[in-house]
Design a protein around this nucleic acid. Structure first.
Lengths: 110, 110
DNA sequence: ACCATCGTCAACCATTTGGTTGAATATGGC
DNA sequence: GCCATATTCAACCAAATGGTTGACGATGGT
């Protein structure tokens, strides 16, 4: 039972996957094009993209024979909300964070 | 060669470690007290705390025979800066993020 | 119809991860 | 000095991770 947050942070822990996200931030890309700059097999990149997709950090849509990858900020938003409670940078979204923290501490509460 | 960012995200990927951080957010704690609510050996918690320490998410200071654990937001700040570039929540610290992204894309540039 | 291209699947491998247990090492109290 | 408490160490284990290779299914171009 791995939560969305587990998957998001685990996905972000790998430098290859962060680099992929950085590339996709500039533009949507096909799998082959994502793989091109890396010194790694296409299959390996395909696995990384699957991990990013399951973590909801990207979405993939097949059009014709090419599969387009694009950033999906939904899980990142969740993770960022979780983090911002610790940082004391800017007190943004603190209400959402507190609800989230409360749920993490007491998962059985309503 | 694992970067600080790798370690921070990897540390955050584990729900036990996130729960520990949430506990430490309320107050500094000794290792034994951190371990108490978990259904897990003390040695396991000790390992988790080592991981959090190496990731610079907490600091540990031994006073007498008890080792006190406290939140250290430094690595979280770095990770949060990295993330905020993707989320488009609030445009905070975007300059820092762009420098960071640039370095991740082109590590050899000055 | 054929062939090249796009991407995944399956099997395998080495390493890391998250946990266990039991012994070992401080340190503090009496 | 002795005992309890606090924490880590070491050896081990199962499962997950990140990579490889080669075969395979789909799709598009000619």
């Amino acid at each position: 039972m791995s939560t969305q947050l587990d998957m998001a942070f685990a996905a972000l822990a790998d430098p290859t996957r962060r680099a992929i996200l950085a590339m996709l931030l500039e533009d949507d890309m096909a799998v082959t094009d994502v793989a091109e700059p890396f010194d790694m097999s296409l299959a390996a990149i395909s696995k990384h993209l699957t991990i990013l997709t399951k973590a909801k950090l990207i979405t993939q849509e097949k059009r014709g024979r090419v599969k387009w990858c694009k950033i999906d900020p939904s899980a990142l938003r969740e993770a960022s909300v979780w983090m911002q409670g610790f940082g004391q940078f800017e007190p943004v979204n603190l209400d959402a964070f507190e609800r989230f923290l409360e749920q993490e501490l007491h998962p059985d509460a309503p």
